[in-house]
Nucleic acid binder design. Structure first.
Lengths: 326, 326
DNA sequence: GCGCTGTATGTTAGCGCTAACATAATTCGG
DNA sequence: CCGAATTATGTTAGCGCTAACATACAGCGC
């Protein structure tokens, strides 16, 4: 079934059918009706490979996240797709792993589909990857971080400011013993480094570390917490690089008969939906993922429409949420 | 940058470049080298819209799941994509929601990209959707369920047998008080119905219900558990339609000062990675999602290659995992 | 040398659609 | 009722690639 079949049935030329589908306001009402009926009768489904080739608009947007099994990214993309749906774009999801090299690999494959725009996670990419994206001349939105030199636009928050705020918050509250349970993720590591520096600045000597591989899950959280308990940091506040890690840490503490927040305070990152529902409820820092997804979609759409944004860097901020664990 | 640019630089015709990329064994070694160099020099990225149009193979496979934020589906698709990667297919993920109608809508959009195959979740689709898929004449793999009448091939397990096995298992172990914490998901409901029937058959009178909306999260689990506690089913085994619900139920019980499995036994579904890491460790029924993803990929690839499978229905089974909660 | 095979490359004609321009039909002021 | 403006439709060419069919050329036995 092609446009031509529909056109023949409706007794018009193919371009009229094309217009009926893409610019219905440019077709007379009676014609539009005839065409619509013909489309229904034939069960015609447009071929967007052909359409994309001819118009040089694929109506496809690629979104690359480290892992789709990571709820935090899945959610961002969910809201991102949602926001794009009304404008007729489809999202093609890709997993780019936790290294720049694997990201570049995926970018190449994805570019062969000629997306009208790309969403990337993070602002660090290989030089070659940056070059390729520039050469492709398509709008790019980088998310989950900020930079003064975005490829095109960036929508995220400052991990530096976040790390400092968290430390200031807890030092001001009188905490003196700090531990970090951190996954091997570039942005998590950055926050950790900033926190360590800030602690020193605030006159607090040490930060006890527990490192676990990304991606994070309850097991890693329990593992990390075991490490910390062995290091004897009783009474410390355990700052985790994700809510999942924090939840795992809580479970491990409970399993060892420790009480939270009495024996350990625990602090998460992300404010995932489950954070408010753990027992005790997890204190964490909220990242507004729906907002980030939506703002990324909005910025990308405007860039696709050729608009030049007066501020290519959108800071969606963060918010410290005090619940019961810290 | 097009094939022609590369061809000119390598001093060959465009078709030779095309062959160098798609059938390198059909090109002389010296030519292949020249072409490869030219591709590197120009930074050429193939246009798969054009390629797909010309060859009638998009090298795209669509995968539709109810929600990508649901870890269980995200994982299935992750393994599915992984298994397809080596054969040069890209996966286009779509969210089809929890109703047949929204699924049909997405199927139509997705078909316009002319995928070489489609993965669907579940075996229930609107009549119109089935028609459209048949008309498109592309291989389809239905997952997460079985049927005697697959659209094409199905890879999953029997929810009926699962429900019966679970009941038999716990009745045999001496449980007499049963409760169901079930999300409004077609397959979850099916299992629940089967379990209820089986209980009657085994001479056990009642099954106390708590229903929560899909998708499931800790909050729903806590909510449902509150319902059950109010209904006074102390001492019952709470059979949950997902591990997440089960985890939520455990948290609620603990928050109310109840002990698991003493006051309540809890049983999950899925054996997600966190199930072994809750405290106490969650008993559940394992669904081998990596296996399901891989088998789905394998079956679909064989169908794409035109093979006729002698058994179009693949049962990946399930396994009851006894841990500490039941 | 002949025809035969097999390998390496090229030519031609589309895939199904839309941009850009061309033409036809309608409206409308004067 | 004319010509200009406006609206509705059609014609043509081409997007970038590949299938299918040439063609060219080397190697080989006789």
């Amino acid at each position: 079934m092609t446009l031509e079949d529909v056109a023949r049935l409706a007794n018009v030329s193919t371009i009229t059918v094309s217009r009926a589908l893409n610019h219905p306001d440019k077709v007379a009402k009676s014609t539009l009706e005839r065409v619509t009926r013909a489309i229904e009768q034939t069960g015609y489904v447009p071929n967007m490979l052909a359409g994309g080739l001819a118009s040089r608009r694929s109506r496809l947007i690629a979104a690359l996240v480290p892992a789709m099994t990571n709820a935090v990214y899945a959610e961002t993309i969910h809201y991102f797709s949602e926001a794009l749906k009304t404008s007729g774009y489809q999202v093609m999801l890709g997993e780019c792993g936790y290294t720049e090299e694997s990201e570049h690999e995926i970018v190449t494959t994805v570019l062969s589909r000629r997306p009208d725009g790309i969403l990337l996670t993070g602002v660090k990419h290989t030089l070659e990857c940056r070059r390729q994206l520039m050469a492709a001349r398509i709008p790019v939105v980088e998310t989950w971080d900020l930079t003064t030199t975005p490829l095109d636009v960036a929508v995220g928050f400052s991990h530096e400011r976040l790390g400092e705020s968290v430390i200031d918050h807890f030092v001001d509250k009188g905490f003196t013993k700090f531990a970090s349970l951190c996954a091997s993720d570039r942005r998590a590591r950055l926050r950790e480094a900033v926190m360590k520096a800030r602690l020193t600045r605030r006159g607090i000597a040490g930060l006890t570390f527990a490192a676990v591989p990304a991606p994070t899950d309850l097991r890693r959280g329990r593992e990390g917490m075991r490490q910390l308990i062995e290091q004897g940091v009783n009474g410390a506040i355990v700052i985790c690089s994700s809510d999942t890690l924090a939840h795992g840490a809580m479970i491990e503490a409970q399993a060892q008969g420790l009480s939270i927040p009495k024996d350990f305070a625990v602090f998460g990152f992300g404010d995932q939906s489950f954070a408010a529902e753990t027992f005790p409820a997890l204190s964490t820092v909220r990242i507004d993922r729906p907002e980030m997804g939506r703002r990324a979609a909005e910025a990308l759409l405007r860039r696709i429409d050729g608009e030049l944004l007066d501020d290519p860097v959108v800071d969606v901020g963060f918010e410290i949420i005090e619940r019961e664990t810290a």
